[in-house]
Nucleic acid binder design. Structure first.
Length: 199
DNA sequence: AATGCTCCCAACCGCAACTAT
DNA sequence: CATAGTTGCGGTTGGGAGCAT
């Protein structure tokens, strides 16, 4: 009640950001901080942009700790394994990858990893799938002691199923089972997940 | 060299959850 | 407690760059 509307979409600028706008936003945040109010920020910073747009630009591009591209194999594995566990919870997945944003991870998945994880119905050539984006140590077949010979993992049948799992057809049987340990560091990926699980 | 196609990424849109009044 | 504003998230899309024909 009594609050200013978000922004007048008819009057704010949209589309790609210019270097001048970037510098304006960066400079403002550097000196004043975000201030906890993205709606008011563009006006204060002298930007003719929607607050939502400013927030997105800052979070996804201007933040000083942002890294673009150059995904490592380790990061690929984290993304694939988390996607298999929790689905498209990009913000959570991104939170496990320092310097990555949810939008960046989402784009990376949609443009690259998904193709690796999804077996394409190619008429010829080897199918690239789960085993190629998730290390054998994270594959179910390798999780049992008996499956130490990861080189024998066959992705042509069961591996394909796991690819579907990686592509979103995951079914966490229990909230806590929806998480996996992606590395050996003390910081596991056991993020709080409000998965809708019937009681 | 020109044209068409595909891929990639930045940005937008809409919705839901949260918070302030 | 109800309502309205704000924030955060995930899905989708438009346009540019690079590649293939």
């Amino acid at each position: 009640m009594g609050r200013a509307p978000c922004c007048d979409k008819a009057r704010v600028k949209r589309g790609p950001w210019s270097p001048e706008e970037d510098e304006q936003l960066r400079g403002y945040v550097r000196t004043h901080g975000i201030g906890g109010n993205w709606i008011a920020l563009p006006h204060k910073a002298g930007l003719n942009r929607c607050g939502k747009s400013c927030r997105l630009r800052w979070l996804n591009y201007l933040r000083p700790d942002i890294r673009h591209g150059g995904y490592t194999e380790q990061e690929d594995r984290v993304i694939c394994s988390l996607y298999a566990s929790i689905g498209s919870r990009w913000s959570i997945i991104a939170s496990k990858l320092p310097g990555r944003t949810d939008n960046d991870v989402k784009n990376y998945w949609n443009t690259k990893l998904k193709k690796k994880a999804m077996p394409m119905p190619m008429p010829s050539g080897p199918a690239r799938s789960w085993s190629q984006c998730v290390p054998s140590s994270l594959q179910p077949a390798a999780l049992s002691p008996a499956a130490s010979g990861s080189s024998s993992v066959d992705t042509s049948s069961s591996g394909g199923d796991m690819c579907f799992a990686a592509a979103g057809m995951y079914q966490p049987p229990h909230p806590m089972q929806g998480f996996v340990h992606v590395d050996s560091s003390p910081q596991t990926v056991l993020a709080p997940m409000p998965l809708d699980v019937p009681a």
